[in-house]
């Protein structure tokens, strides 16, 4: 009788895995696929699993093309706004990139690092920067650099159903097939991780949010995570979404939570 009541109760509950369950089953999947990798190894993206690509990457890292960006970012950090205050007034410790994206209960949305940077500017009567602006990217490069080695701290607070909803939307986006080629993010970075599409090895998604901003040789400049999202969407002939749209922030929120505990490596360089 009791067992039956319990069964009925379980059937009445929505059959949705909790974020922690998602995280552990995804990690189990990758553990099977790449038994040689520790969780921290995923910070290196595709170079964790592609030895040939790794060797040319290691050579480039000797003279990192993102170094001037870190210096310029630091200069912006210590330059006074028109009203005499500093970025440092918003971010006493610049080494907090690992805490983004984060859920803001008061604003009821996911706040990414670029948004937090603009919020600081607006609070000090500065116009917000476009998300592609070099100052915007350089600030992130400096903050990421100061955060290196700290682990992704993105969390889904249990006391706010809206946070869970944002997470679930991000997750749904990740697994939704789209575009003329009918791919989801998961088709490439989960289902086929480690395989090659032409000569490109497909990286696992764990740690996909930990290396930004990234200097891509293909771009010839530093770029953002959301720019990379747009490029993957274009590849499958789907509509690219604007940087910092709710969809892409929720996507980043889901992805970061999957990578919780992986050390930051930004700014980084990628092919």
């Amino acid at each position: 009788m009791f067992a039956l009541a319990l069964l009925l109760l379980m059937m009445a509950l929505p059959v949705q895995a909790s974020p922690l369950q998602d995280q552990s089953s995804l990690r189990d999947y990758y553990q099977q696929r790449f038994p040689q990798l520790s969780l921290a190894d995923y910070r290196q993206g595709v170079y964790a699993i592609d030895a040939i690509a790794r060797s040319s990457w290691t050579a480039i890292e000797e003279f990192p093309p993102y170094e001037p960006a870190i210096e310029q970012g630091e200069a912006l950090f210590t330059k006074a706004f028109n009203n005499g205050s500093y970025f440092a007034d918003c971010f006493p410790d610049p080494g907090i990139a690992n805490r983004y994206p984060q859920w803001s209960k008061s604003q009821g949305e996911v706040i990414s690092l670029p948004m937090a940077i603009n919020a600081c500017r607006v609070a000090h009567q500065q116009p917000p920067l476009s998300y592609q602006h070099s100052d915007m990217l350089n600030m992130q490069a400096f903050m990421a650099y100061r955060s290196r080695g700290k682990t992704i701290a993105t969390d889904i607070p249990g006391d706010d159903p809206q946070a869970l909803a944002a997470y679930q939307q991000g997750k749904a986006f990740y697994y939704q097939r789209r575009g003329q080629l009918n791919f989801s993010c998961a088709t490439c970075h989960i289902q086929n991780a480690g395989k090659r599409i032409r000569t490109e090895t497909l990286s696992p998604m764990l740690g996909h949010t930990n290396n930004w901003p990234t200097y891509r040789l293909k771009w010839g400049e530093l770029g953002s995570l959301h720019r990379r999202f747009a490029e993957c969407l274009e590849q499958i002939r789907a509509n690219p979404l604007p940087e910092q749209s709710v969809e892409l922030r929720n996507l980043e929120y889901f992805m970061s939570f999957m990578g919780q505990g992986i050390p930051l490596t930004g700014p980084s360089v990628r092919k």
Binding site: K195, I197, R198
Partner: peptide, 16 residues
């Protein structure tokens, strides 16, 4: 198709 399949003498095939 070469993105995912080896085909005859096609260059740089994938292996999906």
């Amino acid at each position: 198709c070469l993105a995912c399949h080896v085909i005859a003498d096609g260059e740089s095939p994938g292996n999906i």
